[in-house]
Nucleic acid binder design. Structure first.
Lengths: 200, 200
DNA sequence: TATTAATAAATGAACAGTCATTTATGAAAG
DNA sequence: CTTTCATAAATGACTGTTCATTTATTAATA
C-alpha cells in the first residue's frame, strides 16, 4: 500500500509558507517561493494541496488551531486576573512586533479579503481570544479588581480593539516600544481618566 | 502649444483606482481594471503616471492631502470637546463601514507594505489625526471634562489605537453596529471602569 | 480667414516576464 | 509489480510596459 515516502512533511511546507508570507505578504506568496524554501518544485505543491488556495486553507486551519490552543491555556500563576490579561495582551503583541510579523498578522486578520472561505478561521481565533479575555475579566470582577456589574463582554471587545489597534498604530509610527504603549493604553481603558463627576 | 485635451481628468482616474482597490485589494489592482473603469487603455495610464507605481504614489498623495485637510477643520459647534472627539472618531469610522471601504482604508494604512516610499503619506495622515485628537483632549482638560495633568499625547495614542482597532475587529466579527461599538469603547477609555480604590 | 505645422493624448498591437496548473515521465519503496 | 512521490517541461492566462500610429486641439503663417 505504502509507496515512496515523502521527502518533506506537510508541516514544514506550511511553516515555509508562513515564512514566505512574513517576507512578501500574503498576496505576494508564490508557489515557487515556497517550493524553493523546502527544496521542492511548484507543481509538487499543487499535487499535494490540490491548488494554491488549498495550501492557503491548510495554512489558515493550522494557524487557527495553534492560536486557539494557545488561548485555552490556563492562567499560569499570575498574581492577579488583570495582570494575566496584560500578559495575554503582550503575548498577542509578539505577533506584530516586527514589520514582517505585523504584515503576517494583518494578513491573517484579513484573510477573507484574499479568500472568503478563510474568514471562518480568522473569526474562530478572534473568538477564542475573546473568550479568554472575558474569562479573565470575570475573574477580575469576582476578585474585586473591577467594579461589579461591568459588562465584561463589551469590555472584552474594547480590549481586543485596543490590542489590534495598538499593533496597527505602532506599525505606523514606531514611537516608543510596543509593550509600553500597550500597557499604557490598557491601563487607560481599565482605569479612570475623568474627574469624579462622571461625563454624560 | 496645446495638444489634444484629456478625455478624463487625473482625479477621476485616481478615484477609479481607489474604487478598484476597494473591490480587489491593493495588491490585486491592475492597470487594466482601472483603465476599464474610466474608459481608457492600460498603456495610457503608464504614459500619464510614468508607471503603475507612479499611479499608486499619486493616489497616496491625494488621499493624504484629503485626510489632512479633513482633520484640520475646526470643531464645528459641538457642545463639548469630548463630544467633538466622539464625532471625529465616528467620522473616521465612515472610512471603514463597508467591506470595500475597509479594504481601502487598510490598503492605505499598509501602503508601506506595498511600497516603502508610500509610508510617509500614511504617516502624515496618522500624525494629522493625532494632532487633532490632542487638541481636543487639551480643550477637554481646559474645560474640566478631563482630569488636569492628563497626558494628552499618550491618551491620544490610545484613542487612535482604539479607533483603528475597533474598525479592525468589527470588520472581523461584524457584531453590533460600528458607531455603537466605537462609542462604548471610547467611553470605556475615557471614564472609569475600576472601583474608587485605583488599581496599581 | 484658410491652411499648415506643432504638440499632446490616446490607441492597439506586441513584448517579455511571471504565475498556477497540467501532463508525461522517472524513481523509490513495499 | 504496484503504488506513491517527485520531477521536468509545456501550457495558458495574466501582468506591466513599450512602440508606432492615429486623433484632436492650438498656434503660426500666408
Amino acid at each position: 500500500m505504502a509507496g515512496r515516502p515523502r521527502g518533506v512533511d506537510d508541516s514544514v511546507i506550511l511553516r515555509a509558507a508562513a515564512e514566505v508570507i512574513g517576507k512578501v505578504g500574503p498576496a505576494g506568496l508564490t508557489l515557487a517561493a515556497v517550493a524553493d524554501e523546502v527544496g521542492l518544485v511548484p507543481g509538487t505543491l499543487v499535487q499535494r494541496f490540490g491548488s494554491k488556495r488549498g495550501l492557503l486553507v491548510a495554512l489558515a486551519r493550522r494557524s487557527a488551531h495553534e492560536a486557539e490552543a494557545h488561548h485555552e491555556r490556563p492562567r499560569q500563576g499570575r498574581p492577579s486576573p488583570l495582570e494575566a490579561l496584560r500578559a495575554l495582551a503582550e503575548e498577542s503583541m509578539a505577533l506584530m512586533d516586527t514589520p514582517e510579523r505585523f504584515a503576517n498578522h494583518l494578513a491573517f486578520l484579513c484573510m477573507d479579503l484574499i479568500d472568503p472561505e478563510l474568514h471562518e478561521y480568522a473569526l474562530s481565533v478572534h473568538e477564542a481570544q475573546r473568550r479568554a479575555i472575558v474569562a479573565l475579566l470575570e475573574e477580575a470582577v469576582a476578585e474585586g479588581e473591577l467594579r461589579a456589574g461591568t459588562d465584561t463582554v463589551a469590555l472584552a471587545g474594547s480590549v481586543q480593539a485596543l490590542i489590534a489597534g495598538t499593533g496597527l498604530t505602532w506599525a505606523l509610527d514606531r514611537q516608543g516600544t510596543l509593550p509600553e504603549r500597550l500597557r499604557r493604553a490598557l491601563t487607560g481603558l481599565l482605569s479612570p481618566h475623568t474627574p469624579s463627576k462622571e461625563m454624560s
